[in-house]
Design a protein around this nucleic acid. Structure first.
Lengths: 150, 150
DNA sequence: ATCTATACTTACCGAAAGGAAAGTGTGGGC
DNA sequence: GCCCACACTTTCCTTTCGGTAAGTATAGAT
């Protein structure tokens, strides 16, 4: 949440003043804004809630928690409130007792979910590649360990 | 990192034993695996490094930090090491002094970057929608505050 | 001999994430 | 009068995030 103020500082100590990166793609102002929103949205729970709501439509609080799996009530409340604030989910309170609160995606939320679709597919397709890479990395780490201790 | 053990537990206390969610899309085993990788990859620094490397090709450590912006050496090291471990970046050490270490995306990293492309575009397109939604939310919050304090 | 550059690593610390569990409010059923 | 349901909120606590600053290694330049 308090990231933006440090944005201009580079890697500590020495910074050359001029010589900007010069990539033509996007203009720097938008870059910053986009980064901010990516940082907020690229969050584990947000993505999982997004997916659950995309697949199940309208769900109540407790059910939503069950579907997401492994989330505490505190985090679920927090996540879903943030998403409501950002206009990703709609929260409907039915004034009955016991309370009945329903959550579903807004059009904005649905469009974000669609954009994430590619990432989900990528994850599905490349899961074992990552697993294997991780094993190789471990193996190399063990090897260099042996070398350096000899 | 230590998330996986709590995965089966729902929202604490009461869980109905049977009655699984029943969505036909993906089978539950892959779901878990995909979630794990999403959790790891859906990280602010990872995404930013990914983008920088996508746009600049091969870069050295210090330069990479400058391009990402606002990242400390510690976090940069950690992030790129993780990414190397997962097979997203290639780390090339030139055995010279002073050291020269170059980073670039692997094909796997490039494919992930491509998958995230949709999210970047979404963020660009919907930035002001989110900003406005946030303002409305604030406004409503202020209103209910007044009501409840009367 | 000392300084420099580079890519780190380590130690220290405060802030934030996040879990577990207990508490809250309320109307209807017992 | 008490309990239950549900959607929270609050408190307490541990873990992780992440920044700052200092240290390390080493060959060549001065």
């Amino acid at each position: 949440m308090k990231k933006t103020e440090s944005q201009a500082e580079a890697i500590s100590s020495h910074r050359q003043p001029a010589e900007s990166p010069t990539y033509p793609e996007t203009d720097p102002t938008i870059e910053l804004l986009v980064r901010e929103i990516i940082e907020r949205v690229a969050d584990k729970w947000t993505m999982l809630v997004l997916e659950v709501l995309e697949e199940h439509g309208t769900v109540r609080f407790t059910r939503l928690g069950e579907l997401v799996g492994g989330i505490s009530q505190k985090m679920l409340t927090k996540t879903v409130r943030q998403m409501e604030r950002d206009g990703l989910v709609q929260r409907t309170i039915h004034p009955v007792i016991p309370p009945r609160v329903e959550y579903c995606l807004t059009p904005l939320g649905r469009s974000l979910s669609a954009s994430f679709c590619g990432v989900w597919i990528w994850a599905e397709q490349h899961y074992d590649e990552i697993t294997k890479s991780r094993e190789r990395f471990q193996q190399r780490a063990r090897e260099t360990e042996i070398i350096s201790s000899s």
